[in-house]
């Protein structure tokens, strides 16, 4: 890909690529912005996420579908129905057009499957060495009926904590691919759009207080954020945490805790205790929630600690780390 003199031709090529794969009536308007039908009653939810991933292609997905799923999930866990996406690309000079095409196709397929069109976008090319192939920023807009909004502030002591499936698949898939760890059974990213699962969960009638997608920093970080926001503590059961054997084995070698490894197609739900079984059934009935599990409960705790009952019956703090996990055993 060239930059500079051939800019016009290149821009056209890229436009055509996007039009070809992502094309829809809004994108086809060709203006600086998309003119969209205003949704009916309710409140708008908007979320934005910049996607940077190495490698760009990994088992189970690529940066394209990831950038669609990530933002849809951010909108959906607010309780909203995702409606539209925008996409901004920053391409590094020299990035292969064929790779870009693969990524755009993957985005298109993801958007189509999710039923959430990409309605506007932008592309910039930066000099070689000033980017890492491609960065994609997506913004999503959705709508939620008044009263149906969800936030991280609503967890209450006594509530039950559920996850929709196995932990750490995405992060370990990325690491295994990047470092060519070559495990016997490849670990596949769980990247997926969760709004369908969420719709099914809400349709079950269960009283859901919080939904979140535990992406970077994993479940541990997400639960600590919720505990802080809601002013509560949590107690997890180590034995109840769903982790695939391959992920567990890889984590063990690497000295990683799957609780801190990223997910891209999982959600954590906190609901009223009496509805936990209803919600669990609804989750398990959906393909993306087949391995859902009840993993713990919300407690009153002035420290807002997330704790875990270990296999031996002891309890340990699931730390909220300030950054990378630094060695600490003296």
């Amino acid at each position: 890909m060239a930059h500079g003199a051939g800019g016009r031709a290149m821009a056209q090529l890229i436009e055509e690529l996007f039009a070809k794969h992502l094309g829809n009536e809004y994108l086809a308007q060709g203006d600086d912005g998309a003119l969209l039908p205003a949704p009916g009653a309710g409140r708008l939810v908007m979320a934005t996420d910049s996607h940077v991933v190495s490698p760009l292609f990994f088992p189970g997905g690529d940066i394209g579908c990831l950038s669609v799923h990530g933002t849809i999930n951010d909108v959906a866990v607010m309780g909203a129905k995702p409606l539209y996406l925008s996409a901004g690309f920053i391409l590094e000079e020299g990035f292969k057009l064929a790779d870009l095409a693969r990524i755009v196709q993957s985005m298109a397929a993801a958007a189509k499957e999710a039923g959430v069109p990409v309605v506007t976008g932008d592309t910039k090319v930066v000099e070689r060495g000033k980017g890492d192939g491609v960065f994609i920023t997506t913004t999503g807009v959705g709508i939620v009926a008044s009263g149906d909004e969800l936030s991280g502030r609503a967890a209450q002591p006594g509530d039950v904590i559920l996850v929709s499936g196995t932990l750490g698949d995405h992060g370990m898939a990325i690491m295994a691919e990047r470092e060519s760890l070559g495990f016997e059974s490849p670990i596949v990213s769980d990247t997926a759009a969760l709004h369908g699962l969420i719709a099914a969960m809400r349709a079950s009638g269960a009283e859901i207080h919080v939904l979140r997608d535990p992406t970077r920093g994993g479940l541990a970080t997400t639960l600590n954020e919720i505990a802080q926001q809601s002013g509560v503590g949590m107690m997890l059961q180590e034995k109840a945490l769903p982790v695939k054997p391959a992920v567990s084995a890889a984590c063990e070698f690497l000295g990683l805790d799957p609780l801190y490894v990223a997910n891209e197609g999982k959600l954590v739900a906190i609901c009223a205790a009496r509805d936990a079984d209803t919600l669990l059934s609804a989750m398990r009935a959906h393909p993306l929630g087949a391995a859902a599990a009840i993993i713990g409960s919300v407690k009153a705790d002035p420290h807002h600690f997330v704790q875990m009952t270990t296999g031996f019956g002891g309890k340990r703090i699931v730390d909220w780390l300030s950054g990378e996990q630094l060695p600490r055993i003296c």
Binding site: E252, F253, L254, G255, L256, Q325, P327, R328, I329
Partner: peptide, 10 residues
């Protein structure tokens, strides 16, 4: 080197 960070200490 600590292969696996704190895990190596155990």
């Amino acid at each position: 080197k600590l292969p696996g960070g704190d895990r190596a200490a155990r």
